[in-house]
Nucleic acid binder design. Structure first.
Lengths: 161, 161
DNA sequence: GTATTTGCAAAAGCTTTGCTGCAAC
DNA sequence: GTTGCAGCAAAGCTTTTGCAAATAC
């Protein structure tokens, strides 16, 4: 539910404002990130970008992601390293959000909260720390999977009677 | 300041309770993590463990870290990938804490907060999500470095007069 | 004696880099 | 014409794995 409320800005517009050159390859990658459904890793982004511009190379993907990261336009996620050591990317949202990763089904839920905002304020004030990036990732068991676990436990118990 | 209040449990005692075999190599690694000053990566841990037991191998380090992670006794950190893609490890504390990584000087500050605890409760309740691991990492500029930045800016400004 | 753990070396996975040519302003 | 960007392929770094020997119970 929260996810739908997350507002992602237009990378192309931001880059234009910043005076960054937008080549055909960069455009292809940017469109891939921007229209992605969910969180993509570098390989998935390469494939998605290739559908828009077949020339784009893996190195360009990494170099462009690095650029966007430095400009604070995208965030790099680990998603609790559930599927290896690769990174996932998403367009930065106007309001920071956190990620819940279900270790059972792999689903990622996004979440915003005024408490999170207050915590950020506390961090800045109490430590006089100027926050540039913040990443809150949670690993655990989602609603659906814990229900299924309970059902499985109940079934096992029943079959032992 | 907060850091001193963080209470880290004894890995050896916990492992005994769990009935996990404690070999000489595991003991060496565990002592290395437990007495580490700061956050060590796998290579640093290997070196530290070798000082206690020269036989220990890199593979054993990774395998033991994996075991301790699965048992929820240590936490794996990325520390915002400031120095490559390696991971850092620390003994889990009784109260969860977050990490502030200064992108200028590389210093890591640890931080606990009742707000963080409340946020965790909110996550669990609102999403019915059973939290197993939580990792909050912040990248930015620490107090000391931002002061130096301001001083540098002032000096530059003065020299241009 | 059986099961677990280890070392070794090789492989795997993801990301970065050097270099040359190409494209943009 | 100068500067920055891209492709290619190779290297880099961290982590994982297969297997035989060693160790623990």
């Amino acid at each position: 539910m929260e996810k739908l409320l997350l507002h992602r800005r237009s990378l192309l517009r931001e880059l234009e404002t910043l005076g960054v050159r937008i080549t055909a390859q960069r455009r292809a990658l940017i469109e891939a990130i921007q229209t992605a459904d969910g969180h993509l890793d570098a390989t998935m982004l390469l494939e998605a970008a290739r559908k828009r511009d077949t020339r784009i190379n893996r190195a360009t993907v990494y170099r462009t992601l690095e650029l966007l990261k430095k400009l604070g336009l995208i965030d790099e996620l680990d998603l609790m390293h559930m599927t290896g050591e690769k990174h996932f990317y998403e367009v930065r949202t106007t309001v920071d959000h956190l990620h819940l990763a279900c270790v059972e089904c792999g689903r990622i839920e996004e979440f915003t909260s005024p408490l999170f905002e207050r915590l950020k304020t506390e961090i800045s004030l109490r430590n006089q720390f100027e926050i540039r990036v913040i990443r809150l990732e949670v690993g655990g068991c989602c609603k659906t999977c814990s229900k299924q676990d309970h059902r499985a436990v109940a079934l096992r118990a029943a079959s032992h009677v």
